[in-house]
Amino acid sequence: MTRAALLVLTDGRFPAGGHAHSGGAEPAVKAGRIRNADDLAAFCRGRLHTTGLTSAALAAAAAHGLDPLALDEAADARTPSPALRAVARKLGRQLMRAARATWPSAELAALAAARPRGAHQPVVLGLTARSAGLGPEDAAHCVVYETVSGPATAVVRLLSLDPFEATAVLARLAPSSTGSPSRPPPPPASASTRCPQLRRRCSTSPPKRTPPGRSASSPRNHPPGAAPCTSTTATKDRPP
């Protein structure tokens, strides 16, 4: 049952507003930094190790049951750009609507009441996963996947890139998205993916600061798998 919930949440058609966002791929294309499938792979790898990592930690912590308002503040602290904060909260608000219609819960209702203009999207995503009966690792995987699936879909549209090539990029990124398969799964209490850095962050309450210059918990511009189109709304997202 929970596996099915994860599929619903990560489905590119989950209606949470992400279709209008490219995760920074649009300005990267415009600036000539993404021209082909190899560039897309490099862009996605960079995103996984920066925005994706921090966002996954936030989502996992929320799914684990940490105070979403404290996590929301932690996300704010990691998002210095006012434009990115605004987009992160906008997408959080849009995800909240879809989440409350699909997996209503008292925790979601409480966060919606406390942040009527929207909490940061990764925090809402983690709480959504929790309401759907999913665990922290599921929430982190969901974030990681959409961190790269959004730009891939956007680049197919922006460059008319061969869709098979773009999907192959996502498949080839799978090992770095999930960590080494030879590693044993983490203990359930650690609220983490298999990435050691992420495990450390998730096992303590609010994640530690991110390196300067990284667009850390910047809005994951394409929430629950929503297949993004491209939009100038997301152009301020910094490519890696």
């Binding site: 209606p15 279709h19 209008a20 490219s22 849009q94 189109c229």
Partner: peptide, 18 residues
């Protein structure tokens, strides 16, 4: 602003318009 999908924003994922 709808990105490349004007119909998605009014039919499949109406979040931003709502």
């Amino acid at each position: 602003e709808t990105g490349a999908c004007p119909h998605t924003a009014i039919r499949d994922d109406i979040s931003a318009n709502l």
